[in-house]
Design a protein around this nucleic acid. Structure first.
Length: 301
DNA sequence: GTAGGGATGGTCT
DNA sequence: GACCATCCCTACA
C-alpha cells in the first residue's frame, strides 16, 4: 500500500461516523439552521462591518498571548479580516483550528524546539502569522501563541464578506467549466482559506495585532457570553506521528457547515460533557508546560 | 455522499 | 530522495 493510500485509510478511520449528531437535537439545535449566510456571492454582506468599527473590534497583542490550546479555542468565532490591494475587504469567521504546541509535540513543525528558516514565525511573539507552503502548491496559515514554537493552524472559515472576490480567487486554479463552488466550500480547508482571503507567502512573520492588511476582530454580532459548542478531535493529516496524532487538539464549532472534516466520534464525546472531557490531564499539562518553557526561556534572556 | 488516486514542488535529512 | 498540517476530480453506491 502506498504512503498516500495508507494516509487516506487512516484518515477515513479517524473520522468514521458512528453516531448521528441529529439524535442530540434536544440538547440544543445542533443542525445547520444558523451559520452559513444564505446570501449569494452577488448579494454579498458588505454591510457587515463599517470601517469605523474595525479598530474597535480588532484583537490586540494581549489576546494572542495565551497558551496554544486555549488560543485555538478562543479563536473560534473570531473574524479574520483582509484588505486587498484594490480596497476590497474580505472577512470570514473562524470555525476550525488546530493547536501545534512545539517542543515535545512531534507533529509540530517546531517539534523538539527545532527552528528553521521556514518555521521562524512560530518562535516569534504571539500573534505572528506563520504562512508555509505545503504539497508544493498550497499554503497554510498559523498564528503563533504563547509558548516556545507554539502556533494555531487556521483550518476553516465561514465566509462573511467579499464572497464574489473569494469565489474569483478560489476559481482561479480550478478547471475551466468546473462546477460553481458553494459559499460553504470557499474556506473549508486550511489552503482554501488562504486562497479565498488572498493570504500570500509574504505574509509570513507579519503581526496580526498591527498589520494594516490582515487582522482579527471580535464579531460584533455575536455575544461573547454565548456558549459555543466546541468539538475537540484529533488533528488532521498527521497520522504518521503516532501518539501525537491522537491528541484531540483540533477544535471546531459543532454542526457548522464550513468545518473541513467532521469527526462524529469526537462529537459524541464532546456532547457527553464539556470540551475539556476530551482533553485529558496530560493535555492540559502539556499546554501548561509550554508556558513554563517560555517563562524559562525569558528568564534566560 | 464517499472512496480512491493524481497533481505538485518546497523543505528537510 | 522522501515526505508532506492539501485539494480536486472521477467513479461508484
Amino acid at each position: 500500500m502506498s504512503g498516500r493510500k495508507r494516509k487516506m485509510v487512516a484518515l477515513t478511520a479517524a473520522v468514521a461516523p458512528k453516531l448521528d449528531v441529529n439524535k442530540h437535537k434536544n440538547r440544543r439545535d445542533l443542525t445547520l439552521k444558523k451559520p452559513i449566510h444564505s446570501e449569494s456571492a452577488e448579494t454579498d454582506r458588505s454591510h457587515y462591518f463599517t470601517p469605523k468599527t474595525d479598530l474597535q473590534h480588532r484583537l490586540g497583542e494581549g489576546f494572542f498571548n495565551q497558551p496554544c490550546i486555549t488560543l485555538a479555542k478562543e479563536l473560534l468565532g473570531k473574524v479574520l479580516a483582509r484588505t486587498c490591494a484594490d480596497g476590497t475587504e474580505l472577512r470570514g469567521r473562524i470555525v476550525e483550528t488546530e493547536a501545534y504546541l512545539g517542543g515535545e509535540d512531534k507533529a509540530s513543525h517546531s517539534a523538539g524546539g527545532k527552528r528553521t528558516e521556514r518555521n521562524t514565525a512560530m518562535f516569534m511573539k504571539p500573534g505572528t502569522i506563520y504562512v508555509y507552503p505545503i504539497y508544493g502548491i498550497y499554503l497554510c496559515m498559523n498564528v503563533s501563541s504563547e509558548g516556545e514554537g507554539a502556533a494555531v493552524l487556521l483550518r476553516s472559515l465561514e465566509p462573511l464578506q467579499g464572497l464574489p472576490t473569494m469565489k474569483q480567487l478560489r476559481s482561479a486554479r480550478r478547471k475551466e467549466g468546473a462546477r460553481q463552488l458553494k459559499d460553504k466550500e470557499l474556506c473549508n480547508g486550511p489552503s482554501k482559506l488562504c486562497q479565498a482571503l488572498d493570504i500570500p507567502r509574504c505574509f509570513d512573520r507579519r503581526d496580526l495585532a498591527s498589520d494594516p492588511e490582515v487582522w482579527l476582530e471580535r464579531d460584533p454580532n455575536s455575544d461573547p457570553a454565548d456558549n459555543k459548542d466546541i468539538v475537540s478531535a484529533p488533528r488532521v493529516g498527521i497520522e504518521s506521528h503516532g501518539e501525537w496524532a491522537k491528541k484531540p487538539w483540533r477544535f471546531y464549532l459543532l454542526g457548522h457547515p464550513c468545518v473541513s472534516v467532521v469527526n462524529k466520534e469526537a462529537e459524541r464525546e464532546s456532547l457527553s460533557g464539556n470540551v475539556m472531557n476530551n482533553l485529558g490531564p496530560s493535555d492540559v499539562e502539556s499546554d501548561r508546560g509550554q508556558r513554563n518553557v517560555i517563562r524559562t526561556s525569558q528568564e534566560h534572556h
